[in-house]
Amino acid sequence: MAVLKKLWDYTRNTQLWNSIFRHGPPDTARNRGLVVLTNVFLHLHPVKVRRSGIRLRFTWCMGGITFFLFLVEVATGLLLMFYYHPTVEYAYVDIVDLREQVPLGVMRELHRWGAHAMVITVWLHMLRVFMTGSYKPPREFNWNVGVLLLVLTLLLSFTGYLLPWDQLAMWAVTVGSNMARATPLLGHEGPGSSLLKIGDISLINAGNDARFALLGGRFVGAGALLRFYVLHCVGIPVVAIILMAVHFWRVRKDGGISGPV
């Protein structure tokens, strides 16, 4: 024991340790605060959390579980990217390959189950925040950030849906993206788009409307697969991560997790 203590004391006094941690051991309230404040990741989190605020019966830990699932999706998704080609030729066989041949064939299922679970926990988190009135001032802004994160979660699910490139994926996304035809002004079947015309030529048609930009073509094909892949793996996650940072940081700035009234 004495040896361990000596080693510990020695380590804490090395220049290396002190260059990383600029505060003493977390045995005083001040140092415990500094642990959080001087860490780039932890500083997003409230320095102090009310005991009542983290009662499981109050928060259901749904926000935390959602974040955990997001991390699961990032980790499993990154691994899947090592095997998957977003091309018409290979997409489907790569998915089969991931299931049948690649070691730990459950990886893709983990990604899929995690995605389903994340959608559920996001909704439950929203329900909890609503039922506990935690959206009320001063937390209105953070509620709105949360709504954006909900939309991004659903978009992640939607874009990921296409990637297996099977019949279900094709038609689900065909049906889903057909909604973009009805975008006001920018969809060629949407309200107001017929107003945008020069003489007899309408400016918005199937070859240049919102759906076309989403799919990179007139129907769900190679272009759509690649676009959805890029959005799924890079575009939406980056925006989601930025908004999550804002979301967590605002919890702290708005006075920590709201307590039961």
Binding site: F219, G221, G223
Partner: peptide, 9 residues
């Protein structure tokens, strides 16, 4: 940029 000139359709 997001609207290609040539479509492979």
């Amino acid at each position: 940029f997001m609207f290609p000139n040539v479509l492979f359709e």
